[in-house]
Design a protein around this nucleic acid. Sequence first.
RNA 1: GCCCCCAUCGUCUAGUGGCCUAGGACGCCGCCCUUUCAAGGCGGUAACGGGGAUUCGAACUCCCCUGGGGGCACCA
Length: 476
Amino acid sequence: MTDVRVRFSPAPTGFLHVGGARTALFNWLFARHHGGEFLLRIEDTDVARSRQEWVDGIQHTLEWLGLHWDGEPVLQSTRFDRYLEAADHLVKAGRAYECFCTEDEVKARNEEALAAGRTPGYDGRCRSLDPARRASLAAEGRPRSIRFRTPDSGTSGFDDMVRGPVSVEWPTIHDFVIVRSNGTPVFFLANAVDDADMEISHVVRGEDLIDSTHRVLALREALGHAGRPKYAHLPLLVGADRGKLSKRHGAVALEDFRDSGYLPHALLNYLALLGWAPDDDREVMSIDEIVAVFDLDRVTHSPAFFDYQKLDWMNGEHIRRLQVHELAADVLPFARERYGERLDVRVFEAAVGLARERATTLVQIADQAEFLFVADGDLVVADTSWDRLVATERVREILDAVIAHLEKCEWTVEAIDLRPLLETLGLKARKALPAVYAAIEGSHAGLPLFDSIHLLGRGSAVARLTAARERLGPDR
RNA sequence: GCCCCCAUCGUCUAGUGGCCUAGGACGCCGCCCUUUCAAGGCGGUAACGGGGAUUCGAACUCCCCUGGGGGCACCA
């Protein structure tokens, strides 16, 4: 396949969500795999709902993901003249007409039809107004929109790269608005014009747009553009109830995933597996590996459930594949935000090395290192962990012995190892250690104890154990 | 109401007429490892929606049913 030119064309009416990111990813992968171009087009024809902050947000998020686009983004709001010119051309050619029905009137008639059990859709009453009537309606100051006249008979069809031949009878598609009464162009028109002007070779998007394809294709043909792009409609992403993925299912904004500590590559890897799979059993893959084997012919057909648990697993896998210094750099912003000036970068890197083996998100790594960056007096021992400490057999004896040991032992991880000491006391490490974890880290479960004590330093370690011992009070 | 699309373990998927007593992964359960928690290792649980048809032979082809999703905007 040659000359691949695709585009991702979000409407800037909100943040980039997982569905949009998946669409962007599949376009990007397709372009990169075939050595083609991946363009960005902002579909901001709905002036009322589009906001500059969303335009910026979407671009920043795509960059964070690493889905870099070629060339400058095309903003449809800067191309209204071009669309209006096309609309004018269609009216002159008799393919579109002025409609004086107001939005409310059309809506009312549709509701009436629906209530009566009839099929809704524009009834075509302004289709063939004579010039005099048109002039008088315009003179009345009636709002005027432009509608595209759809064929009254015949079939519209196209060959979808993932679904095969798709067709629909024209009579089921009613005349639709291409220019609003406020003079702004509508999606269908802008889409048809831009895909032609930008010489888009393949349109890859969500299945929710499959029905609109017939209208865009008809416009394109009416505008006199030879040929058509190839279309590929991707299965939708759904939530736990199998409905369209939305906020009530959990995080859907890409920013939320970023802020929760997910790696862009893990997210991309997971998203790639939603509706696509390589021809072998690989799942955890680098972006380059995916690009090398990705193609649209292996895209699946049915809606996919976004599984947060599998994403967590995937993120952990990618975390473990990073070098410690790379991972530390990724976690650093989260740690800085939490620990500010108290953060000791050398200690932090060591902690990341320990946390790496047991984390699913960057935030977890930052959190697990917390005990290293709080003052001894500010360490909070979680209630359940304190209960566990209190319930530990011979806990006073254990703490006293550990304190004594740490006060004088050589300060190496090997020397700090408490197991020989516990063995001397006839205690099982597995039973006794959770109490020490709690006193040192504030939790009975956390980073490996001996390394943690080593990183903390003798003074703090002894101080924390002593504080726990004092809080415990004398044996009664 | 009308139109379109879809249908393999709970979830993501492999599978394109015999290699399938249906494979992998997440999750879950058990065991091992173990300095807590994880991670890791090993094992287990679990699916071709139903009915016809074609065929020597159907998860794979066709039809019907059922179920799910999407669309029918002066949103995109």
